[in-house]
Design a protein around this nucleic acid. Structure first.
Lengths: 190, 190
DNA sequence: TAAATTTCTTGATTTTTGTCAAGTGCAAAC
DNA sequence: GTTTGCACTTGACAAAAATCAAGAAATTTA
């Protein structure tokens, strides 16, 4: 069983082995060099990808600054969901912070999945529900935690990221400036 | 066509009139007096409701404070999604800030919907995707906006709430203290 | 390897937001 | 209608976080 198949099995609860193989066959290998764009804000995002290896940064450019919405790593799916599903202009730019290997399905094949895998919509619904709950928790962290508490929580769960990418992006993703991030980091290293 | 049916039609894109009627018939009228609980943290949430009238507050109690995650009003659906779908203990308490009229479907019937309405899972997937995108925007507001900017944005879109419920709950929902909220409010009234 | 670029750190300072405490206004309850 | 609670406001102050600027460290490029 390929890596992709294993992940599909893990992500989409209750999917059968046959279904996994069928789904996996619709994904194409896609390679990004460090610095390549996966998606640019305003374009249409007509694909969904699974990250086999590498790190992507999802961000938006405002007048005076860039805001990093999320850092996506091995094992995550990546897309602009609103653009993929509702065909709205992409809200995010996405580019690679390292050389990256993706498995990508285009919108056409993605939309066929429910005809190939009867339970697909149900499976995807469960997947989306999980994503929704994760985001609820993330909102809650901004309502209830200080910058330092958000740092510590994220650090516990994502230590490995801290020596792989520029920390300024993690700072932005956690809703603080690089300077604040640096000071909290110094404190927590002692 | 009843109010509930109209809203179902609006929420779940592409659903047919017959399907709407079938779905609507599974919802039961539920009345809450001001101050009644819809759900308590830690319990199982085995229902999903549509708010016909009234206002609900969704919050969590921490050691030292209560944090309001969301204020739900007419036209919204309300539940603890993780608890409804994955049967985990409810993360939120939900109670009514005013007398409230709901249309409620229990988990058993909810889980039958896909057998009654063939496209249900697909419809629900689209609905969840919309919810996800809304939460993405909410996270982004915390990464990119100041307390004052979040206040103004929310005020523009939800003026009517500001004279219907205690403002401290809106403050909490926007991630600031009642005092900060009050000062911003004073400024923006001038 | 050296130069250039980017990232990170640090200090000084300002701004924003939170905390604490007192007081006002209002509405529900008696 | 007086009392009792809330909810809200306000002021003084403290803490958290942002900003600005300079320089150090690390990484990339030549």
């Amino acid at each position: 069983m390929s890596e992709l198949e294993q992940y599909i099995g893990a992500y989409f609860e209750g999917i059968t082995e046959n279904e996994i193989a069928t789904v996996a066959s619709l994904f194409q290998l896609e390679q990004l060099k460090k610095g390549d764009f996966y998606l640019k804000e305003g374009k249409s995002c007509d694909k969904l990808s699974f990250i086999s290896s590498g790190i992507l940064r999802i961000y938006k450019t405002l007048d005076d600054k860039e805001v990093t919405q999320w850092i996506s790593t091995q094992g995550y799916f990546v897309t602009d969901l609103a653009s993929l599903i509702f065909r709205s202009p992409a809200r995010w730019s996405i580019y690679s912070l390292t050389d990256t290997t993706l498995y990508t399905i285009n919108r056409t094949d993605y939309n066929l999945l429910h005809t190939i895998v009867p339970r697909w919509a149900e499976i995807e619904k469960l997947f989306l529900a999980k994503c929704f709950v994760t985001l609820e928790e993330r909102v809650f962290s901004h309502l209830s935690l200080s910058a330092e508490e958000r740092y510590n929580l994220f650090f516990e769960q994502n230590r490995e990221l801290f020596n792989q990418i520029p920390l300024q992006y993690l700072a932005s993703m956690l809703g603080m400036t690089p300077e604040t991030f640096s000071r909290i980091r110094k404190k927590s290293l002692r």
